[in-house]
Computed example of a mutant assay.
Amino acid sequence: MSSTTSPFPDRIELTGEGLVLRDWTEGDVAAMPDLFDHPDTAYWTPLVSPFDEAAARARLDKARQLRAQGTTIMLAITTDGGAPLGEVMLRRAPEGTELGYAVGPAHRGQALAARAVRVMAAYAFEELDVESVILELEAENSASVAVATATGFSLLDVPLIEGEEKGRPYVLQTWGLNRP
């Protein structure tokens, strides 16, 4: 963590858009496999697969470690502060302040990702004082492209990001949203 990067608060709860974005808790570990152990999630995200209770515990531990390091915030997406429906993430990266998300299969089609992205972007602009946020996604991931366009992001004219995850090559586009 650079000396110019302020630490994140120990606890975060963000509200807006009919959502409560809150810290993951020990009580969420049992619910996380239902959210993240799905072929779409395995394909489009770096989350491990299969995503079982051990993976959930590791994810909770990683979320706490990355928060303490001041690099990443991972919050549960909820409508009322209760049961998690997915996750929204903010990561301080060399290429910019990146947002990411995953919504459980049973909870898709409710604009949860778009709403969570808007709330997290507002947090980045208002509380972290960033000038812009980015999304990195594959052009073929129509659901994520829909989230990007619905939330006002624009495709940036920057080099594509090529890599391999879980034995599958990928090419990511970078989408950006500037502070209002």
Rank of each mutant, 00 (worst) to 15 (best):
A114Q: 05
A114N: 06
A114E: 11
R115Y: 04
R115H: 08
R115D: 05
R115V: 06
R115M: 00
A116L: 01
A116V: 00
A116M: 01
V117W: 04
V117P: 05
V117F: 01
V117N: 05
R118S: 12
R118W: 07
R118G: 01
R118Q: 04
V119W: 06
M120C: 02
M120G: 09
M120N: 01
M120I: 06
A121R: 03
A121S: 13
A121D: 11
A121Q: 08
A122F: 04
A122V: 10
Y123Q: 02
Y123K: 04
Y123D: 02
Y123F: 14
Y123W: 08
Y123I: 00
A124K: 03
F125H: 08
F125Q: 05
F125E: 07
F125R: 12
E126Y: 07
E126R: 14
E126G: 10
E127I: 12
E127K: 14
E127Y: 12
E127F: 11
E127L: 10
E127D: 13
E127S: 09
E127M: 13
L128D: 03
L128A: 02
L128Y: 02
L128M: 02
L128C: 03
D129R: 14
D129W: 10
V130C: 10
E131A: 09
S132N: 06
V133S: 01
V133A: 02
V133F: 08
V133L: 04
V133E: 01
V133D: 00
V133Q: 14
I134S: 15
I134N: 03
I134K: 01
I134P: 03
I134M: 10
I134A: 07
I134W: 05
L135Q: 00
L135D: 13
L135C: 04
L137I: 13
A139V: 10
E140W: 03
N141R: 06
N141P: 06
N141L: 01
N141T: 05
A143M: 05
S144E: 05
S144N: 06
S144V: 04
V145R: 04
V145T: 04
V145L: 15
V145G: 12
A146K: 03
A146G: 13
A146I: 00
A146H: 03
